[in-house]
Amino acid sequence: MSDDYLWDGSGTPDPDVQRLEALLGRLRAPLAGAPAPSLPAQPIRWRTLRYLGPALATAAAVLVMIGLTLRTTRTASSWEVASLAGQPRVGSSALAGTGRIAVGQTLVTDGGSQARMTVGTIGQVTIDTNTRVRLVATRDGHHQLALERGTLHAVINAPPGQFVVNTPSATATDLGCAYTLHVDEDGAGYLSVTSGWVALELHGRESLVPVGASCRTDAKLGPGTPSYDDADAEMRRALDEFDLARDPTARSNALRVVLDHAGPGDAMTLWHLIARVDAGDRAAVVDALAELLPMPAGVTREAVLRLDAAALDQWWNALGLGEASWWRNFKAPYPAGASR
């Protein structure tokens, strides 16, 4: 057998090489399609300055100004990070006291370490133990982390949409709030909001999670259906079952439990379910929501059943959680399947 396949994949496939490609290819550089790392300032080459003569003083002043600008730029493309316990690692270096994390770098905590990152001028993120998080981007109006596993607590004071956290099972967009986000080893996640709102999204499936509510995320499904933390426990258990079930009968059975146990405070949850249930179950959800929260004037049952965007908007507005038009400015709140 020739080495053509080993050379460039041409010719008769070599089974051993194919097997190695399949196994080792999983380790391929994830950075190949990613942007290049943020650049620091290039150093000034001092030996060239010897020849500048009388212009040196003027040039030095200019260089100082340039240096200050570059320093500002460098600082702006990184965050301050402080160790709260133990010895977190930033990149390949152990962090003692305070330091900085640059775009592209990863912060890793073990079972005995915690850290706090300062998100530009808009807030702070506390990194819990056994967590791995990467700084994806930071610039005016946009700050982004990737939480690969573990737990972070974010407190953000900024206009909606400026702080984003990617996880394997959803992207969490801050709507001016405080929250805790956890990611399991298998990529599944859990979001709990303690102030404001967070929008979760994966592949067009969205959930809006208000203060006092939480939401599970699943690597295949994306965001689950949010519910309030003080909701009926049986309803929440059935909601998880509904979100994860593939079998239509199992979904219908779980949905029935959800509707039976939904209380006056669960209108937000039922609103999310309208577009998520199978078509045959939609009327039951709409009717259950109508009992908790009457349809506003101008909204018809028929319009909601066909997932009319304007009708869903108006009903959402009646929840008293903010105007749908306001959400729409940065992220539409419709669950997947709604007509726009």
């Binding site: 550089a29 994830p30 950075l31 290049a36 790392p37 650049l39 620091p40 300032a41 290039q42 150093p43 990149g91 390949s92 640059a102 592209g104 770098q105 990863t106």
Partner: peptide
């Protein structure tokens, strides 16, 4: 640590 070191290498090369 490979991904972080890749970043380090390119930043070092740039400077």
């Amino acid at each position: 640590d490979v991904d972080d070191l890749v970043q380090d290498v390119f930043i070092s090369a740039y400077t």
